[in-house]
Amino acid sequence: MSHTAYLTTRPRAFLGLLAGAAAGGAVWAALNVLMLLIFSWSSNGPSDLVRMGAGTWGLFSAIYLMGLTIFGAPIWLLMHVANRRGPSDAIIAGVGVSCAAIMVLTIVIAPTGYLMWPILLPAVSVVGAPVGWVIWRVAYRRADHHGQGVSA
């Protein structure tokens, strides 16, 4: 069985975290606009949807950047050292870190925050998976047979 090795650099890892934060904001913005369309909460037409989407993207990108810095980067470093660097590892980490972060934050913010987990965890999982994949796609490159990174 062949094992594909993946390598990264500090600048690519940093760019991966930025791209992951932007992806998290984008997925939440898309979900927000979709909910507005489904439930007709937008009264001013398409410009209202664009404004809401852009505002959601900005807010959630900033939130994701903080979360990735506090929760995600240490886990990502541990996974990198443990040689868990594939795309499926990144997706699982994205879901796991997102769910763990929301569980910790809901308990810290409100003692009864765990009551929201049945609603929050599936939504956070839907967002965490693409965030993990985007971070992996930006940060990692396949290694050649000499252990050097190959440009993609």
Rank of each mutant, 00 (worst) to 15 (best):
V33E: 09
I38D: 00
I38N: 01
N44A: 15
N44E: 15
P46M: 06
P46G: 07
S47D: 06
D48G: 11
L49N: 13
L49H: 14
V50N: 03
R51E: 14
G53L: 05
G53D: 04
G55P: 00
T56I: 11
T56F: 09
W57R: 04
W57Q: 07
F60C: 11
Y64C: 07
Y64D: 08
Y64R: 00
L65K: 00
M66P: 00
G67S: 06
T69L: 12
T69S: 13
I70M: 08
G72S: 07
G72A: 07
P74I: 07
I75G: 05
I75V: 15
L78G: 15
L78V: 13
L78M: 14
V81F: 10
V81R: 15
A82R: 12
A82F: 04
N83G: 07
R84W: 11
R85C: 06
A90K: 00
I92M: 12
I92W: 08
S98H: 03
C99I: 12
A101F: 01
M103R: 01
L105N: 02
T106H: 06
T106P: 00
I107S: 07
P111A: 09
T112Y: 04
L115D: 11
L115C: 02
M116E: 09
W117M: 05
L120G: 05
P122F: 10
A123V: 12
V124H: 04
V127W: 01
A129M: 09
V131D: 08
